[in-house]
Amino acid sequence: MRNLVAGEARKALTGRIWWYLPLAGAWLCLITTFGYVSEGEKAIASGSTALAVGQDVARAWMMMFLLAAVFGAVAVTRDYGSGTMVRSVLLAGSRTRLFGAKLIVSTVAGALFGLFAAALGTASVYLAPGPFGFEAAADGETALILFGVFACCTLAGPWGALVGWIVRNQTAAVVTLLVLTLLVDPGLQRIVPDASKYLLTIAMSSVYRDVKPDLLSLPMAYAVIAAWLAAAFFVGRRLVRTRDIA
């Protein structure tokens, strides 16, 4: 299994996705950071605090979890798209071993995305306010937000991989993740807030300590995320074992 995981890691590091997805995520998060700090002085003048602005900046880095999920999905689906999946399965020893190896690699990749986001988030909290005329401020809550960002990225890696195993087509898997994260879940949160808090990405809002109302408690949020991952795991594993390999 160690060889298989190492081989899958080498595969994940081949090509451009291992660097352009984190860079794309950093770009998106920096734009959001810029938005918060450029309006920071005005927000403070109208009653907010530098601490609250700093927490918003930290929270902006939660977007990296979407890129971690896309990475996980691409790590699986590009094998199908390129025709590599046949050799991957044959050399893995069994389909479930390959399924497990890709999940491990996606989880580690998610954690690395999380570390990257937490590091840049911390730098943003301390360095971004200065040029915009107010003092940087952070507290324990800021640290918890950044830890939440790390945790969400770590969990998003395998989530993306599982979606990849279920959907198999790269474009469809990436679109599924984007639509669920950016349209379906937020849309349902507006329409049915009581039910939508049990959706995966809305539960993640609790983990990175969003300030929206009607969110789950942290333990409940982790339980809901675990349930989604477990459901996707069992569906994905069953499909991997039973469907013909294209």
């Binding site: 081989g7 899958e8 081949t14 050399l91």
Partner: peptide
Amino acid sequence: VSMDGMGGVPGATVRSELRIWCTVLG
């Protein structure tokens, strides 16, 4: 095995592709 339609790892060179499979095979 060599199956019709088997492709290469995206972004790989000939050597790096084979080395990936060497890693998998130990």
